[in-house]
Simulated scan of single mutants.
Amino acid sequence: MAAAGFKRQKTCPDMAEKNCAELPTELLGLILQKLTLPDHIRLSCVCKSWNQAVREKAWRHKPDSPWLMLPGEEDISAKFLSFSENRTYSIPLPLPEIRRRVCIGSSHGWLITVYDMSEMHLLNPVTGVQIQLPSITTLPYVCDYAEVDRPLFLYKANLSLPPHADGSGGFTVILLHNPFRLYDEDYDDFSNMAIAKVGDNSWTSLPRTSHGSIADIIPHKGQLYGVDVGGVLHVWDHHHLTSGPKSILEIRFYCGMTKLLVESLNGKLYMQYKGLYYNTFMAIRLDTDNPEFNPEDDLGDNVIFVDSNTSFSVSATKFPELGGNCIYFTDDAYFDFDHLKHKPREMGVFDVKNGSMKPIPNLRQRLHWPPPIWIIPTWLVHTIAYIKLPTALA
């Protein structure tokens, strides 16, 4: 209600646009750098001049804590749980329908998705930019993806470097899969790793390692690290992946558990061991100079996020809405995708110090397919046309 003695004035669109345009670009940039991603998007949609300034300058937004991607109510949308704003956004995504895709990787704010008819895409869910990747059928031992045991065949993908805003760049997509799910006597001739770059027409299968299938991979200090199912660590040169691992660290540890690699804030490499049928974690710090694992019960400022396809760490100090010395997890039973398609997923927050478990806050009733995945949202838009604000962010 207007204050006594004052009459509310209506502002015409042309006047509002003129007032927006009068704000110096440098001042607008200072404001944008203080805003989180949702407010960054809202500001860009105030008027055309601000939208243009955001696109041309591509200011970085204030880092936002990770989002949890959940199934949307419609086939073409997904929900994203934001801890910083304590709410869920519904964001429409480009075709093919996101409800018919499985996300097998989350890296640098981009998702690697697999459509049920074999197509693969690199997708930024915030900007809507999507890049076609080679089809699964271009792997040398896959003729018909429909005949593959799909829920068990593909389980993880990662990016060697951050893509540009338009999805271009010199990065490599590294794919982990299970050739033995083809039920073919010749699967032993192939590695469970393949690579491709944007623009490639097919996947390139990497040489098979001598110790067994790779369970997880992560770029670390300019190299690619991978741990196999037996707990042996392999190291590749980023620029010579097709030559095979350049070194192998013979460290076998907790062979019967799920293994996930994650880089800490100070550049240390951790291996997260998770029980296959119960949610308990072991945080193991790897000393690459002295090949041994060092169990940790204090992650310091690190907050670790893991699921079957993703693992990364963020700062508890920078994001006070998160619990410090904790591991945020979602169910990692990728081998039970079909059986769990219509059942609730196990999700929670594991306290490394005391071993306790608590639910993820603000996670209300939800659908169960496709499986959830963590993502660090990014929004660099200098190559994108005029931005339309998703209704969920209005």
Rank of each mutant, 00 (worst) to 15 (best):
N201P: 04
I248C: 08
L269V: 04
D189P: 10
N290D: 02
N192P: 10
W203C: 00
T288V: 13
L261Q: 01
N201W: 05
I195W: 08
G267S: 06
A196P: 02
H239P: 06
S205T: 06
H239Q: 11
Y277F: 15
F253T: 04
G244W: 07
L265P: 03
S210T: 03
F190E: 01
S210M: 08
G212R: 02
S202W: 05
S247K: 08
H238N: 07
T242F: 14
F281W: 11
D237Q: 06
T280F: 14
E296F: 15
D228W: 00
G222A: 05
G226H: 02
L241W: 06
A196L: 04
Y278Q: 14
P219S: 03
P291H: 15
F253H: 10
T209L: 01
L206A: 00
P207Q: 02
W203K: 02
G267K: 08
D237V: 12
S213P: 06
I195R: 04
I218E: 01
K268D: 15
F253P: 01
L241M: 11
G222V: 00
D200I: 13
E292V: 14
D228G: 04
D228S: 07
G226R: 01
S264G: 12
L265H: 05
V198A: 06
D297I: 11
L260V: 13
D200W: 08
Q272F: 12
H238W: 10
R285W: 15
I195A: 04
G230L: 09
D287E: 05
V262T: 11
C255V: 03
H238F: 14
F190V: 04
S202L: 14
H211S: 13
V198P: 05
C255Q: 13
A283K: 03
G244K: 07
G199E: 00
S191L: 12
S247Q: 07
L233K: 09
N201G: 13
F293K: 12
N294P: 10
Y277H: 15
D189A: 12
I214E: 00
Y225A: 10
Y278H: 13
D200S: 08
F253W: 11
I195Q: 05
T288D: 09
V198E: 03
S210A: 12
A196K: 03
I248Y: 03
G256N: 09
C255N: 09
D289L: 04
G267W: 00
K197R: 15
L224A: 11
I214L: 07
L206C: 00
E292C: 15
T258C: 14
T258V: 09
N294H: 14
S243E: 15
S243M: 15
F190H: 01
K197W: 02
G267C: 06
R208E: 06
E296I: 13
N192M: 04
I248A: 07
S213D: 10
L261E: 02
I284W: 06
I217K: 00
V235R: 10
Y270T: 02
P295F: 12
I251Q: 04
N279F: 12
L269K: 00
V232A: 01
I284H: 07
P245C: 11
N192D: 06
D228V: 05
E250Y: 14
A196F: 01
H239S: 09
L233P: 01
T258R: 12
L286Y: 07
T258A: 10
M257G: 08
G231H: 09
H234N: 08
F293C: 14
N294Y: 11
L206H: 01
K268H: 15
K246F: 08
V227E: 01
A196E: 01
G212C: 12
V235H: 09
E263G: 03
G230Q: 13
Y278K: 15
